[in-house]
Write a protein that binds this DNA or RNA. Structure first.
Lengths: 114, 114
DNA sequence: TCAATAGTTCTGATGTTCCGAACTATGGTG
DNA sequence: CACCATAGTTCGGAACATCAGAACTATTGA
């Protein structure tokens, strides 16, 4: 398997970040990876709320996050470890990820529409 | 023409904001509306960079921004006036819009890929 | 070598986006 | 009022994106 593509921090584009995080499920996956610092994905993040994400979808979501520059993925044996690149992104776009994650955390705490 | 739908600030969802602003063209339109405070759209914002947005696309973009809660649109005679709802959103999601607009402004100042 | 585990790619159904053409709404002029 | 011009919306089809099941690949362990 060829090494996975990761954009350098200079190549990271705001539209890619916003697109990646405009899906609440993907945002939740990213929040979990960021919170844990290093998570054994994808199985470890496969449940969001009360939904189990199909593994093909999860694989796709992880790819979107990776290609947006939000996470770094490394194979360790049979599994993938996903690290948040929060720190790097914070250096380039100060406050961006924190305010996005806070916004989602805020609405998650509210009664909600469902 | 029935009055346009505007979500109340409590109904505004982060995913809608991120989705709306994940298109750089739409983000530029929003930045222009926010910068001007009140812009006679849609014609006034129809040129982004060196591209003139077709009016059906522009109408759609304005609608996406409006339904995301980012702008408020009022008909004044034959034209529409678009106001940014930055202030309201700032109260609900502090720092969110500022960091997004800063991120775009930052990459706009860079040499760029093209 | 074979099985198990973890994740990726393929594929087709469903949904979204884009934009020209046709349409609607408002205001001005005679 | 009839008519035109202006500003924006809606329609419709082509192009593109997303979702998830099935089939596949890669790695480890027995």
């Amino acid at each position: 398997m060829r090494p996975l593509f990761h954009p350098s921090v200079e190549e990271v584009r705001p539209e890619a970040i916003l697109h990646a995080l405009s899906d609440p499920e993907r945002a939740a996956i990213f929040a979990e990876i960021s919170g844990a610092g290093c998570v054994q994905a994808c199985s470890a993040v496969a449940v969001v709320g009360d939904r189990t994400i199909p593994k093909s979808s999860l694989s796709h979501d992880i790819k979107v996050l990776r290609e947006a520059g939000l996470i770094r993925c490394e194979r360790h044996g049979v599994e993938m470890r996903n690290h948040s690149r929060c720190g790097e992104i914070e250096g380039r776009f100060p406050g961006l990820l924190a305010s996005i994650l806070s916004a989602y955390a805020l609405v998650a705490r509210e009664p909600g529409v469902g």
